[in-house]
Design a protein around this nucleic acid. Structure first.
Lengths: 130, 130, 130, 130
DNA sequence: GTGGTCTAGACCACT
DNA sequence: GTGGTCTAGACCACG
């Protein structure tokens, strides 16, 4: 069963996109495996405090991407082979890093200063690889 | 006069927020100084190809934050002292970098691999410091 | 025993309403008589390939209308006198035909062209009187 | 401008399908022409007493069928050439007539009796071709 | 309990 | 004012 304990709802963009990104990140990180059970619309709706329809929209788009499969009346599961995982992982790595690099350039920071800033922040944060 | 040459319109979120963020980043980067003239609503509307109302909305919110003020008829100017600039800059640097580091850790990327990925992407992008 | 051989499941509206309409039409047509046995929930569920709850819902509404009643244990039977049959039949004939005539008039079809269209379609369809 | 004076909201099926059918019938009957203005979402929403989003759904599906064209911020218009009109007309004629024929067969009415019933009802109704 | 669909209301960008 | 999108709540069929 996919856990949403780590999920925090931002008020940045559409909620359904935040959910999609969270699941993709989990798959790319290996936290979410293949044929893993997905929380029901109602359960996740109650947990996150959003409307079931919003969850439905996120799941529906993931289903169109082939990342989860749903059958009416039955539970839903992930469906990701190794190729799909690699594709999702690369997609997230490039998009997130591009956003950050763009921000650094806009702030007039050169690459070495940016790396130095990362070194200061990286170790202060918990979790992940060291 | 504030330049919008570096500005690229994304289809992420509301346009007026993108404009606000661009100006704040410019101030933080030092490319936009104090008492610098802001393009007229009409001119910026034509340059970016967006509706004048959208520009008006962005300027209005910046005025409420005290970041731009209207003087001498129709022209508007920035209004930020050095302390404000330094504060905004540090805030943006830390928050954007923290977001990216968090994402890399979620994806299980170690620091050296993350740096290597940045090196690949940094030079492929136009603009900013080299 | 009511036969469901002629029944075809559409994807128009709620299934339980389709079942109710089918039985009412059968009564109006005379193919379903008074005190005729109704298939068990389980049997009809298996025959139509729909969920037993859906059958239950249809039967429950028919019971509330007094059209079927439960007798002698689990078996259910129809309960309609001749006057009721004639009234239902006339209602269905007039309402369905009125709907069709209204549609033809809206489309600007005269009566003879409408009849010619019916002749083309009537024979292509299976079942019913020839 | 398309008129909705003749439109009556049934509680049969989905509202957006009723709206789609009404517009298609108008096009097939010649009541609605090419390049004719379509009521705005808000205006039709207020007139029919339904949510603007329901109108939006109907219009969106009509746009996917190429029957109306919409531009953001501008009014919407129909877009139907003679071929499209003929296609829509045939589609409605066959589907409506098929429904009626199916109903008559289920009620055990033969073709001649059905025709006689139509003759009784046809002239009692106002409008359309005589 | 499950997933799927329809209707409702608010917000955004644009003319 | 216009069209487009996001979130919300209720209902239906199904296991």
């Amino acid at each position: 069963m996919i856990s949403f304990e780590e999920f925090v709802l931002e008020d940045d963009g559409p909620i359904y996109l935040q959910i999609i990104k969270y699941i993709k990140q989990g798959i790319a990180a290996g936290t979410i495996g293949n044929q893993e059970e997905v929380p029901s619309r109602r359960a996740l709706s109650a947990l996150l405090g959003v409307n079931p329809n919003t969850i439905q929209k996120a799941y529906h788009m993931l289903e169109e991407e082939g990342i989860i499969v749903s059958r009416s009346g039955a539970k839903s599961f992930t469906s990701v082979d190794d190729d799909a995982i690699a594709r999702i992982r690369r997609e997230l790595l490039v998009s997130d890093t591009t956003v950050w690099v763009k921000s650094m350039k806009l702030l007039g920071v050169n690459r070495d200063d940016a790396f130095e800033l990362v070194r200061q922040i990286w170790n202060d944060m918990a979790g992940g690889e060291e």
